[in-house]
């Protein structure tokens, strides 16, 4: 591990000033991802600015009935928060489906948003990887990619500097994407709000960048807008073992019914793309139509029509289709 200086700032603005002046530095949240990547030699910051005790650990009510979640709220506390369990069951379930009890106690909301991919070539410094070492190529595209992306990836072959089929590993982010959350960010030029849809990016021709944040920008909070019908919502995750494993495919969905008609619907997918994937094609197909299994399945198939899987992850396409369908059927049958 590279040597580093450990710094604490007195307030968020101080942390931003500190890190803005340290081009190779990084913020430290719970450290459950960053310390691991430093030990692996994947992350090599020379300064760590500890923001775990600097950003808010509170969940506050917003005037519209939504919630503001401080960036330092631990994942475990957010999942246990009564207002989250009541208003946003899909968010509580997504958090509880992630990692382990120990990790959720330590991991922060801000750190969870910015955790890096679990692609095995990204974490192995002896392998080519455009995300870790820009321009070195992509080991995964013709190697182990069973757990990688089927939507929105760039594949131009193993030696192209653009190729990347990584997935974003967070469960929480999938629920936040379905809920249209926004991220409050403090930078050297002041505060701004980033819709969650614009926080993470597709690899495009620059796979090294996971997000649209600039160096030194600090996440201070996440705002979740009110969505009264999210009481009828659910997060489902398929993985290789029953617990303590990353998603192969996950679905966060909420359903608003008017009798047997879909008044509104939210669907987001995890484990299929470089960012949490909002299933807008399926949503548009369903709104105003019948809440039947056949309609759910047709909408799911329409969403996955854009999938471009590789040899070993093609199973994710029917898996995602079936999961969207089953989750919506369950929500339609559930009492709101």
């Amino acid at each position: 591990m590279r040597e580093f200086r450990y710094e604490k700032a007195i307030d968020p603005a101080g942390a931003v000033a500190l890190l803005t002046g340290e081009p190779e530095g990084a913020y430290l949240g719970g450290g459950t991802n960053l310390v691991d990547l430093m030990r692996l030699g994947v992350a090599t910051p020379d300064v760590l600015v500890d923001v775990r005790q600097l950003t808010s650990t509170e969940v506050e009510d917003l005037p519209d009935g939504g919630l503001r979640i401080g960036a330092a709220v631990p994942n475990a506390d957010l999942a246990a928060e009564p207002r989250v369990r009541e208003r946003y069951p899909l968010l509580a379930q997504a958090l509880l489906a992630g990692a382990s009890g120990q990790l959720r106690n330590r991991a922060t909301t801000g750190g969870n948003l910015l955790q890096r991919t679990r692609c095995t070539y990204f974490t192995d410094t002896t392998m080519p990887c455009n995300k870790r070492d820009a321009g070195s190529g992509c080991g995964a595209v013709e190697g182990l990619h069973r757990n990688l992306a089927v939507l929105g990836a760039t594949h131009e072959g193993p030696t192209s500097p653009h190729t990347c089929i990584a997935t974003h590993p967070s469960d929480m982010v999938v629920a936040l994407r379905a809920l249209d959350a926004s991220v409050r960010v403090l930078g050297a030029d002041g505060e701004r709000t980033v819709p969650i849809a614009e926080l993470h990016r597709l690899p495009g021709d620059d796979p090294a960048r996971d997000t649209t944040l600039a160096h030194g920008e600090l996440i201070t909070a996440i705002d979740v807008p009110a969505l009264p019908w999210a009481t009828r919502s659910r997060y489902r995750k398929v993985r290789d073992r029953a617990s303590y494993a990353f998603a192969l495919v996950s679905v966060a969905a909420a359903l608003d019914l008017d009798g047997s008609t879909v008044r509104d619907v939210r669907i987001a997918l995890g484990g299929v793309a470089h960012k949490p994937w909002r299933a807008t094609v399926a949503e548009d197909a369903l709104r105003g139509g019948p809440a039947t299994e056949a309609a759910f399945a047709a909408a799911a198939e329409a969403e996955l029509a854009a999938a471009a899987p590789l040899a070993d992850n093609a199973f994710k396409v029917p898996m995602a289709t079936n999961m969207i369908t089953r989750t919506l059927v369950q929500l339609a049958e559930a009492r709101a």
Partner: peptide, 13 residues
């Protein structure tokens, strides 16, 4: 009082 993985906690924190 909260369970955590001490391998991922930096001693300085």
């Amino acid at each position: 009082g909260r369970r955590v993985n001490s391998c991922l906690v930096l001693a300085v924190t």
